[in-house]
Design a protein around this nucleic acid. Structure first.
Lengths: 338, 338
DNA sequence: CTGAAAGCGCTTACAG
DNA sequence: CTGAAAGCGCTTACAG
């Protein structure tokens, strides 16, 4: 028989309600009563049954973070930021991996799990704009992260993609580079990360009165080291000349960097390189890699604030969907040094 | 008013118990009844209240994975393995970051969180063997991961550290290396990862009748890229001659690799390098890095099996603490090619 | 500031 | 195979 609140109440000669009040930091309690209750808790080794609290209060204290793959450094760092921010709100974070599979993402967002959660931070990877209608009438509040769904019926937090890519490209232009690869652009939809970053790239060139050479707009799939390495090999084989690379994420940038170095291309002397995401590893490559910091902490904190508001508002919620674009920061490192 | 099981029962003209049976895959139900219930669930848009189930059944369906920092690739990959394995047991995984702070680890293991969990996988980083007594009388089952606590009163899963380090060292010896750094060894306690790996290193040398040169046993703190880079710089500055490196984890190996290359040392021609952990990145460095794969999947699956058993056994649990050493695999890559 | 009652929505024995 | 009752351990109104 575990010790219950009732046992504590008896031991302290107060009502069970008073015990609850003390444990929930309800303000108006006589210090003396409070001490007596806390001593009883100590004496009996009482531990709150959080399931009972969750049932009665309607809050479990857990949220879910849905990401494609936690092994990807971008998502690991996002998760760390979310866990830290959640800790400040007394929330625990369940990590769920979707693998970027649309059906699985939908299941997770629709609450097909065996554990109660109060809300979901959903890093969209499998579903797209055309699936936005599936995100209505969900059992818990959901906040969208990333660039794949913009016109959904939900709160949405993402980074300044266009501006970040533009700044990265202008940085290379300022360094005298003229033939810059848009690396990872592909045949992407215009509202994807790739599409938005390509727009920033185009804007940068346009602002200097330069034309976009289609030969410099290259795909790299998947957006992992491997995809970057393969794509860079293809570019080198094709004989296309270039003196700069804006990699649309750090992992493909890292893959490209390895291939460039292996091929005897000097970075930054022959080719300057900027990535995207500011994952920790970029500070430790040789040369260290310039990159666009998406403002991870800001993303995590804003998304959690949105989610907290929705949870507090309950289901009779009529706040209009909100959107937040986190500020980016260009991190200039060795790979683009002039 | 959300739809409850009672509503479903009425709609399907069965008792609430029958609804529960259907939803929990209780076997003996007439197909007809089953269909009627499922149709009612569909019609009413019923969703189980998992908090109520958790209260009544005493199981929340969540476990916690306590790690120092999820941004560290080793722990991110461990987490991915745990989440995948947990999924097969219908468990969700809460990730909690201890920062390696002893007090925080203790709090997490003692269940000071606001969310109910059925058990904890605890990757020990802050506490040590001398704190093992603090791990008695915990509110939920706990399985220990790693090398810091061996004689605790709890189930324990770790890798074959001694054997792995020995194999890595013998691999370099077989390649003709004779002056091999034990990199990351430090003044470590004998039961730490460092201590066990150093033992394997010693055993390998001894098996060939070679002496251990104390000048080759070097510390690297912290066990991150940075610590490895600084330590390797110090070694190079000291003028100690060496032709091989067994790095006691991949991150310090990666830091060392960068410094070696920057200093014009050729890898593997001048110095052969083997790491520890087999994080994904080692396959993509230039040169790719040889490493000891700790058997992450086996660790995750065994630890979860242990935890599942403890949870099922309940608190009247008298199974003796169990220990499991996962099998290692030496991954030979470019950095140690002969 | 504190108490007594009701009830959150399930599952668990216990019947039949 | 299915039902009616009890109760898991809290918090929420409602009083006073």
């Amino acid at each position: 028989m575990p010790v219950t609140m009732r046992d504590v109440a008896e031991h302290a000669s107060v009502s069970i309600k008073t015990v609850s009040n003390v444990l929930n930091d309800y303000p108006y309690i006589r210090p003396e009563t409070r001490d007596r209750v806390l001593r009883a808790v100590e004496d009996l080794g009482y531990r709150m049954n959080h399931s009972a609290r969750a049932l009665r209060s309607g809050r479990s204290g857990a949220i879910s973070l849905v990401v494609p793959d936690i092994r990807n450094a971008y998502f690991a760092e996002l998760a760390a930021a979310v866990i830290d921010a959640a800790d400040g709100l007394d929330l625990s974070v369940i990590i769920e991996q979707s693998g970027g599979v649309p059906e699985r993402e939908l299941q997770l967002v629709q609450g097909r799990r065996t554990v109660p959660v109060d809300g979901v931070l959903y890093s969209v990877a499998g579903l797209g704009e055309e699936d936005a209608h599936l995100l209505a009438n969900l059992p818990t509040p959901v906040v969208l992260l990333g660039e794949r769904i913009f016109r959904g019926p939900l709160d949405h937090v993402t980074m300044q993609n266009v501006e970040g890519a533009r700044a990265a490209t202008e940085h290379l232009l300022d360094g005298g580079r003229r033939r810059i690869l848009a690396f990872g652009a592909g045949a992407a939809a215009s509202v994807s990360s790739a599409g938005l970053r390509l727009r920033g790239y185009r804007e940068a060139l346009a602002s200097r009165g330069l034309e976009v050479d289609p030969a410099l707009v290259v795909d790299a799939q998947p957006w992992l080291r491997e995809g970057g390495a393969n794509a860079m090999r293809a570019v080198l084989d094709s004989g296309v000349r270039f003196d700069g690379v804006v990699a649309f994420n750090d992992l493909i940038g890292l893959g490209a960097l390895r291939v460039l170095l292996d091929s005897g291309v000097r970075v930054p002397d022959d080719v300057a390189l900027v990535g995207f995401d500011d994952i920790d590893e970029t500070r430790f490559t040789s040369p260290s890699m310039s990159t666009v910091d998406p403002g991870r902490r800001e993303i995590a904190e804003t998304a959690l604030a949105f989610l907290r508001d929705r949870i507090a508002a309950g289901s009779g919620d009529d706040i209009a969907p909100r959107e937040h674009l986190s500020r980016f920061h260009l991190r200039e490192r060795e790979s683009s040094r002039r």
